[in-house]
Structures are given as C-alpha cells and as structure tokens.
C-alpha cells in the first residue's frame, strides 16, 4: 500500500489525493534549494577528495587502502578540510550552544540526568543551574538534598548545551532566566534533522498568546504565553517554586481559546513533520494560518486532505521564491 506513513502518523489517501501529493513532491524535488543528488553516498561508497592525506576525516568516514569511504548512508558535507557524512535520519548530535528541551530522568548526587533524544542521557550539574533567589553562591549540602524541589523526575526543562566532551558525554546549563522548568503546555516531538540551528529558538506569538520553544533536539514545547496568565512572576516560572508549590504557574488554568491555539500549532507541527518539511516558526505560522483561513477543524488537521493541501502550498511557494529562509 502506498499510503503516506511518515514516521509518526499514518494517512490513508484516496487516489486523487495521492496524485496531488505526488505532483507536489515532484515540484519540490525540482525546486532549487534541495541538496544535490550527487552528494548522496551509501555505505562503503568512495568519497571523492583531491588529497586524502590533508583531509580531516569526520563522522561517517573511514580510510581503507588509501581511499576514503563512507560508513553511513547520507549526504556528504564539506566544511573547509573537514569531510563528514550526515546520515539520512540522524539522531540528534549535540553541539555547544544548542538550545534543547529535555526531560529529567534521574536525580543524582549534585547533578540531574536529562533525556534530550541523544545517544545517552546527558548531565545537568547542580552548579550549572540558577538557584532560587538568583544569588550566586556555593552549593551547600542543603542544596544537594533539595534538588528535587528544583527539578524532579519527568520534569521538562529548557536548557543550553554547555559542553560536549570527547568521550561523548554532554553537559547542559540553565544559567539564564529564559531557561528552566516548563509548564502550561504540551510537548511535540519531531525528527531532529527537521530543526535547523537558528539565532532564536524562543518564539512568542502575540496574536495567539502562545510561546514556543523549538529545541534543536527535535523536542518542541508549546505553551500559554507567560504574560497571558494572571499574576505570574517570571522568577517562579523559571526556577521552579521558591516556597509553596501553590505559587506555581502550573496551577493557573488555561482558557479554551488559548488551548485551541496551542492545539492548532501542535497539529501544524505534526503535519509538517509528517511531510518531512523543515520546522521554522515561519512555516509553522503559515500552516496555522492556512488551517484557520480554510476553516479546517483542529482535529481534521491530521487528516489526509489537509496534508495534501499543505504539500501543495509548499510546492507552489517554493517554485515561486528561489531562496531558502
């Protein structure tokens, strides 16, 4: 069966819908901005280099008998002298400075372990978080015992990658007011290769009263905008509670209108991910607006008709504009 089953949702298309999708896909393939097909290599294919000795062999390459071969199926990337192969469906590869959304899996001594869709769970040291009160001081034994009051198991946090070590371990930090525990929203997971590293990962959509954090690791957090909730001090949202948990903003209930906006945005992201399109705030908002203007009910956004419509929109947009955002 040739239904679209793109790593997440399964869509059953009628014949006419299938044709339309195929046409859109063809248009997109020919549109400029796509990777050059000759850059694609399979495992054990030779990679063309001028001088094998001076080239830096990155991830996914190997030297055999003086020839450079690929050890992954994917696209060859050349940056100066570094040659790497980027796999088709790569797992998230942490890099210093990445903004990520992660889930606490373990509370250990002086550090938390966080799941960020990486090979292993990564570390968030106690010394790398902002203590409540915002004062810089040495961490005491009391702080160690109170780690759970800051973040406990299964909590979602936003953080930045502090360092990536040679043995593969990664450390995060939340040393900024914009990072911390996440509340009042839902998480959407997309394949990490659909998220490009941008200047800004925190987005505030004023018209919908919704905040969005697009983590480089493919975890996207959509929540009610902080200022839309009544009486909500910034500090409390960021550093967990500073005292009684009742002060937590997660006890504020979200209005139905805002909730609908969050749902609609989440579904827009899901549709884009099913089609394999890059996830930018612009594409998300575009899909969001399209669903409203065409009067598509939120639950129908995950249906076949909307999927095909978005593919057609993107195809016509790409062929008109010849630039990548």
């Amino acid at each position: 069966m040739e239904d679209v089953s793109s790593r997440g949702l399964h869509f059953q298309l009628s014949d006419s819908q299938r044709n339309r999708l195929r046409k859109s896909r063809e248009l997109l393939r020919e549109a400029p901005g796509n990777y050059h097909p000759s850059a694609f290599v399979n495992i054990a294919d030779p990679i063309h280099v001028e001088n094998e000795a001076t080239v830096l062999k990155g991830h996914g390459t190997q030297v055999l008998d003086g020839q450079l071969l690929a050890t992954l199926s994917g696209v060859v990337e050349r940056v100066d002298q570094l040659v790497t192969v980027k796999p088709l469906r790569c797992r998230y590869n942490a890099e210093t400075g990445d903004v990520v959304v992660g889930r606490i899996t373990e509370v250990g001594t002086k550090r938390w372990k966080v799941d960020i869709n990486f090979r292993q769970d990564v570390h968030l040291m106690l010394s790398a978080v902002n203590l409540p009160g915002g004062i810089q001081r040495r961490r005491t034994v009391i702080d160690e015992l109170n780690m759970r009051s800051l973040f406990e198991e299964n909590d979602l946090i936003s953080a930045e990658v502090q360092s990536v070590h040679s043995d593969g371990s990664v450390h995060l930090h939340t040393r900024s007011l914009k990072y911390g525990k996440l509340t009042n929203g839902q998480l959407v997971k997309v394949p990490p290769y659909l998220v490009k590293r941008l200047k800004q990962h925190f987005h505030n959509l004023k018209s919908c009263a919704v905040d969005m954090i697009i983590g480089c690791n493919g975890y996207i957090w959509i929540c009610a905008a902080v200022d839309s909730l009544p009486s909500n001090p910034e500090i409390e949202k960021i550093t967990g509670d500073s005292g009684a948990p009742e002060m937590d903003s997660c006890n504020e209930s979200i209005s139905l209108k805002v909730r609908e906006n969050i749902c609609r945005l989440a579904n827009s992201i899901r549709v884009l991910s099913a089609l394999g399109f890059l996830i930018y705030p612009d594409t998300i908002i575009d899909t969001f607006d399209a669903s409203i203007s065409k009067g598509v009910a939120i639950k129908d956004m995950l249906g076949a008709e909307f999927l095909v419509m978005i593919a057609e929109r993107e195809a016509s947009r790409r062929t008109k504009n010849n630039y990548m955002l």
Binding site: F11, Q12, R103, E153, N154, D155, L156, K181, L182, T183, N184, G185, Q186, L187, C250, N251, S253, I254, L256, R259, E260, C263, R264, A266, N267, R270, A297, I298, K299, M301, L302, G303, A304
Partner: peptide, 30 residues
C-alpha cells in the same frame, strides 16, 4: 513519563473537552 505540568495540562484539556491532538472527547482517530 509526564511531568506534573504536562499531566495537569492534559487533564485540564480533557475537562474542557479539547484533547492534546484537537479531538473532542468521543472522537475516534482515523
């Protein structure tokens, strides 16, 4: 596992009749 905040969001949504994927309470997925 879900964080306390996510659980709260989920149950509140259901109480309001709007689930995380936009469905109503009695809607079956396709």
């Amino acid at each position: 596992g879900l964080s306390a905040a996510e659980r709260r969001y989920l149950t509140d949504g259901i109480a309001q009749g709007l689930r995380n994927d936009g469905r109503g309470l009695y809607d079956f997925r396709a």
